[in-house]
Write a protein that binds this DNA or RNA. Structure first.
Lengths: 224, 224
DNA sequence: GGGGCAGCTCGTACGGTGTACGGTATCCGT
DNA sequence: ACGGATACCGTACACCGTACGAGCTGCCCC
């Protein structure tokens, strides 16, 4: 019956528990608000106790990113386009569910889960029969799209904090010399009345996958 | 003969001088090492004096990002594919020259220079005759690619700090169970012997631009 | 000329951070 | 029973962003 969520004093400290609680905290309050003292409080421990399981704060955040990465569904075997799409979409969802993670992802060394993730993408592309150079480029294109797009997307919803985009964008437009920025004004209006612009993430992803497919037909696939 | 670079006591404090010096400092030591005290020292001023010209540190970094953005060459009028490519390449160069900037770009409100930049991309796409929905999606695809790709690229060279990628990647591979990650091992080897993989940035950019072109032919361009 | 005021400069101080260090408590192998 | 490892954590330190208010100018209006 006892919930383990906040400060059950009987629960032993472990690296896993620390990382899980840190992820939960970052999800709730943002990674900037995460401090060793506050996290320790939440775990019912002293701040310095965490350092038994964690080298330092950077190491901890690295571990958090890896924990999040482990949630991503890896590309299945078989038809590569669909598998890649599904996995990319899963990564997109996971990174949106932990809005701080994409940003950290880009500036830290990969842990074991992320290495496994990288491996799986590369394998999927290689087993699709892509030319070696195309695997190299395709890997960059796809992963770049996944985290780049998500970061960009999160940027839009993080502008102030919490309130809806509409009010912000409105104020934004009113403040600036809209007359000088007509296309931007239109674009923001489009954002306001979104919903029916559909699946942007998938749109660009398909541009990339189509391009890889086509490039492969031109130079590699046809040759074999 | 007197250089104005570091602490000429006669130079008046201005927002422009502060931002320029802050950018220079961040270029040299990274944005994490940038503190108000150290920056003030460099300017031959007291830390609190900066606050006359800058609301707070966040405001300052916003200004720094905007200053950097102003270096980007906007897309020229005329043939849109070439113009977009040139501008994207310019943005890519600028963001590589200020390695901290791409990361900040994604988490801060745009200032005047960035608004102008956004406007110019949107205008270029619109004047290319793209369908309204394609302008919306194309804008996101292109800008996402520029900063996403650059961030990813910088991630690779920021792993430790300063030393060359080769040694790091080697150590990296040796540590990990390479046998379990064969495709990743291959990929890292490819990174080690780079130089001839060519223009990755342009490769993906072309995938996107080609895709937009094609999508426009299918639904918009043909109709008009 | 003089008095006031506005704006720039910045010393000091406060509440916060990450974490080094050393002390204590608890357990385990002998 | 006891010695040593291990987990825990209180205290302290250096450093951070920045609120506050005191000093110093230089200008305007009487």
């Amino acid at each position: 019956m006892a919930s383990a969520s906040t400060s059950d004093p009987k629960l032993a400290l472990t690296r896993e528990r620390i990382l899980a609680e840190a992820v939960a905290f970052a999800d709730e309050h943002g990674v900037d608000a995460l401090t060793m003292r506050k996290l320790a409080d939440r775990l019912g421990a002293g701040a310095m106790s965490l350092y038994t399981y964690v080298k330092n704060k950077d190491d901890m955040i690295e571990g958090m990113v890896d924990l999040v990465t482990a949630e991503i569904e890896l590309p299945a075997e078989g038809e590569w386009r669909g598998a890649m799409r599904d996995s990319a979409r899963s990564a997109h969802h996971v990174l949106l569910a932990h809005p701080w993670a994409a940003h950290e992802w880009t500036s830290r060394m990969p842990g074991p889960a992320r290495l496994a993730y990288m491996e799986s993408i590369l394998r999927s592309l290689a087993e699709a029969g892509l030319d070696e150079g195309l695997v190299y480029r395709g890997y960059h294109a796809v992963t770049m799209h996944i985290v780049g797009f998500t970061i960009q997307e999160l940027g839009y919803q993080n502008f102030p904090s919490g309130q809806d985009l509409g009010a912000v964008a409105r104020a934004f437009l009113d403040d600036l010399a809209v007359a000088d920025l007509p296309h931007l004004a239109l674009h923001v209006e489009a954002h306001l009345s979104d919903e029916d612009h559909g699946d942007e993430f998938g749109f660009v992803l398909d541009l990339i996958l189509d391009g890889l497919d086509r490039a492969n037909g031109d130079q590699g696939g046809r040759r074999g």
